[in-house]
């Protein structure tokens, strides 16, 4: 087995996905099959082969550091789930004492 149900539950937490038991039961064996299958890449990934992260080589794409028009605050906030005083209103981000 490539991955256990407990490891899948840990992955869900890392991925910020609050999955129920049913979903974990369903996903865990599927992920196990997929991971076992894709592990084949190791067969040919020899040490001397350089990795490719991007197919078309590009380095340091810059633009002039000039002021440009951007979204107005009301446009940027228009899709927000909650807004207060011209800002994104979010649930508490600090743990309670």
């Amino acid at each position: 087995m490539a991955i256990t149900r407990d490891e899948v539950a840990h992955l869900a937490r890392l991925s910020r996905l609050a999955l129920g038991d049913d979903e974990l039961d369903h996903l865990a064996p599927q992920l196990d099959v997929i991971i076992s299958s894709v592990a084949r890449v190791q067969e040919v990934a020899a040490e001397d082969i350089p990795p490719t992260s991007h197919s078309v080589p590009l380095t340091n794409v810059f633009r002039p550091d000039e002021r440009q028009p951007c979204l107005a605050p009301d446009e940027a906030l228009a899709g927000a789930p909650a807004v207060e005083d011209g800002r994104f209103r979010v649930p508490r981000i600090l743990e309670e004492e």
Binding site: V8, L11, L17, E23, L27
Partner: peptide, 22 residues
Amino acid sequence: MAVTRAAGFGAEVKRRIMLGTY
């Protein structure tokens, strides 16, 4: 965040996010 993502994403997106995280 975790509750919203669990409710808002479908099964394949969840599979791939978790696979990538792994």
